[in-house]
Amino acid sequence: MTYQSAIPTRPDTLEQPASQFDSLAQQHQADTLGMWVFLASEILFFGGMFMAYTVYRTAFPAAFEAASGHLNLGLGGINTAILLTSSLTMTLADDAVVARNRRATAIWLALTALLGTIFLAIKGIEWREEFREQLAPLFGRPFVFPEPHTDQARLFFSFYFALTGLHALHLLIGVVLVLVMLIFTLRDAPHLDAKVIIAGLYWHLVDLIWVFVFPLLYLAARHG
């Protein structure tokens, strides 16, 4: 891909590896491997909760399907589309930084952060809706759900808030990370390509986790 009026990033020759490394290549490989190891750890982190959710989903299929029906599938679907698009813009940012194009990098990063923020805003709207409908069993608030599934539905919504909350926290960290990358890009920081690509890895993982969260929670009622 070529960009018009590209502002190039600083050339590699100006960059030195950190003192513990022998070469830039070694440093970049270490950084990338480090992020992958971290992502493996993250997968196990969410995996524990997916596991617990699946146990109860299997134990109480009827209640979980009924409770899942109370989620806003429309907003959830829109959010899924937004997050998938953000992964595309992040990939384009990766692409641009590899092509040493600072302007394009900055634009795609800004778009990515924007999409992430919109996702969080929509998530907030959904949560407010659920609070209004008294579907949030948090802080000792009343939980209203028709019999006979009240107790198990409370369990479902416990998982719903725990999972979407943890995911939103991760996404928030992701947005901040992407904004930091944006600042780095504008300042033409050293090792820019490695930094952006590693931030991208994290972003894709948070996206990927949503790809599991969405069907587990929203589509439980609609599996036919």
Partner: peptide, 19 residues
Amino acid sequence: MIALERILGIGIFDPKMGG
């Protein structure tokens, strides 16, 4: 999950809620 159960009152391991 234990911390959330105690702070927020959600019941992932509470047998009364099917946990």
